[in-house]
């Protein structure tokens, strides 16, 4: 090891590092996971062209699954395939039709706020959306799987949206600490630091249009969406005010996110 000290040692280490990186770069490393190519191609076909009774996914979700950041249609590229399949299945369920007009929870801070918690253990598991319910019902199980394989293997990199520091501070506070006085957990506890997501159950919040995040939280609150496991998101969403939604959306839109990019 006494070769490494000193200037000649540093030159030696530099040369060795350069040599090693050349050797590694020279090798064509295989893809880290094997893709089901047939499913990928079928999914690509369906996403770009659609079929009888199913509109093309790219019409709303973007040519490369990046979503539509003006209208708030979500990014699909790089999401976990199991998550995508579950959401498509939940779209296919019967939409909520209970005949009661459910309003989002109104937070009146003049009076002492109450905590609303859903005592349902097993969520009915439906997700209401004007466009997606018909599409989800029309797709077959194999098509859903193919689309999931296709979209989960697409590459995506988001461009962070700048925001004022007050909103970012509030958003960071919610993400890292939640609202302890309301027993609301921090977003990072499940969605991972900086909204990178974790596994099949907790999708990434970074790299999603801010309007999508806000509209989904609204849907959690009104009950139009209740396909969360154990009502976890329902209980979180009921604690969020309108200002919180804006702050958290701005915060996550400000995070960098890249997936499947070499």
């Amino acid at each position: 090891m006494n070769m490494i000290n000193g200037r000649s040692g540093h030159r030696l280490m530099l040369a060795l590092t350069a040599l090693t990186s050349l050797l590694i770069a020279g090798c064509d490393l295989p893809a880290s996971k094997a893709i089901d190519q047939a499913a990928f191609d079928a999914g690509e076909q369906l996403a770009i062209n659609g079929r009888e009774g199913v509109i093309a996914c790219t019409a709303c979700h973007g040519a490369n699954g990046e979503g539509n950041w003006d209208t708030g249609f979500p990014r699909l590229a790089g999401l976990h395939p199991t998550y995508l399949v579950k959401q498509l299945n939940d779209f296919a369920g019967d939409p909520l039709d209970i005949g009661v007009d459910l309003e989002p929870i109104a937070r009146d801070y003049v009076k002492t706020p109450r905590i609303y918690k859903d005592l349902t253990i097993y969520s009915p598991g439906i997700r209401t959306d004007a466009m997606m319910n018909d599409i989800g019902a029309a797709l077959t199980a194999e098509e859903k799987n193919n689309l999931a394989v296709y979209y989960s293997n697409l590459a995506f990199e988001t461009s962070p949206i700048p925001a004022d520091f007050q909103s970012l501070e509030r958003g960071l506070d919610l993400a890292q600490r939640g609202k302890p006085e309301y027993m609301m957990p921090r977003c990072d506890a499940c969605h991972a630091a900086k909204g990178q997501g974790f596994g099949a159950l907790f999708p990434p919040l970074a790299g999603q249009p801010p309007q999508y995040i806000i509209s989904q939280i609204n849907k959690w609150q009104s009950g139009e969406r209740n396909n969360d496991n154990l009502s976890m998101m329902k209980n979180v969403a009921t604690q969020l005010t309108a200002g919180d939604k804006i702050n958290i959306a701005k915060y996550y839109a400000n995070q960098s996110y890249r997936v499947n990019m070499e």
Binding site: L102, T112, R114, I115, Y116, K117, L119, T120, D173, P180
Partner: peptide, 21 residues
């Protein structure tokens, strides 16, 4: 309805630590 009032915690009663900022 699926909105159940469970007055379990009253946030006004809990001490709030200072902000991280």
């Amino acid at each position: 309805t699926n909105l159940v009032t469970v007055p379990v915690v009253n946030p006004g009663e809990f001490f709030m630590p200072p902000n991280f900022d």
